[in-house]
Amino acid sequence: MKSWARLRMVLGRVGQALPALFGVIVVTFILTRALPGDPAVYFAGPAADEASIQQIREALGLDRPLYEQFVYYLGDLASGNLGVSISTGQPVLEELARRLPASLELTLGALLLSLAIAIPMGVLAATNPGRPIDHICRVIATAGVSLPTFFTGIALVFVFYYLLGWSPAPIGRLDFAYLSPPPITGFYTIDALLDGDPETAMAAAGQLLLPMITLALFTLAPIARMTRGAMLQALGSDFIRTAKAAGLSQRVILIRYAFRNAMLPVITTLGMVFSFTLGANVLVEKVFAWPGIGSFAVDALVVSDYAAVQGFVLTMAMLFVLLNLLIDIAYTLIDPRIEANG
């Protein structure tokens, strides 16, 4: 009965994400139409005359009314046709499919690392407010967020690759000495492990480490601050006093009563943190020659590769919608207070 209601709620959330996805598609469509310049002229090349431009315009369907173009656009999207990138000559979809796992591996890895550091840091700070440990956490978090990622990235490369030589050269996902593992998840470290090749996995992890740390440092601050605040609030609430008065041990109070409640607002901020991690990704990918979609998009933008840019915007927007959907669902499942129609 109850789990039914929960499932209905989850499905409801999924349903609510559909209009957002449709909105994303409309916006990308309008965006490409609003960009300056006539694509037909662009495609026809500099030597084309009026007649050949007109011909291309008809061939591309650009002479049709806007709604008809939109229907074609939807049809193309449904069949996975995002056009061809003029800078690489490859279909945009293939290009994105190849690069997206690289970006996701980096971003998710960084986020996990950041959570693993920031949450204990926030809890420590909250349980010792005003004490030295609180101030140390604050300093670390503030330093992390105030240094621009390209600077931290270069500094890390300088120290750990150039000076100490502990880290491999920042030349992408895998050193040339290794073959990339068979694509299963698209994440090199995981694929190599699945393939039973720990050596390649280690090499991939080594490549991943520095850019991951760079990004993680940047996202430390918001998560740590949020955890600290939420934890302080939870620890100050009445039910903690009840738990104390009932003689529950410090560990149970801290973890089962305070921490679980404090995680709710932290989960909400995760969506936001993820979005700006993806933003910061673009620079980090450039510094570490990481073959992700961020560096691809920057290259495409520089050479006015509209199909590629459009594909990128579409992918990112979908990613945001899906991620927020996941967070919403997680929240619905964790917090019993969310009502069926709330």
């Binding site: 009840t242 409640n261 964790i334």
Partner: peptide
């Protein structure tokens, strides 16, 4: 109401 853990 607030003396009880809201999510347990």
């Amino acid at each position: 109401r607030s003396a009880l853990n809201p999510i347990r």
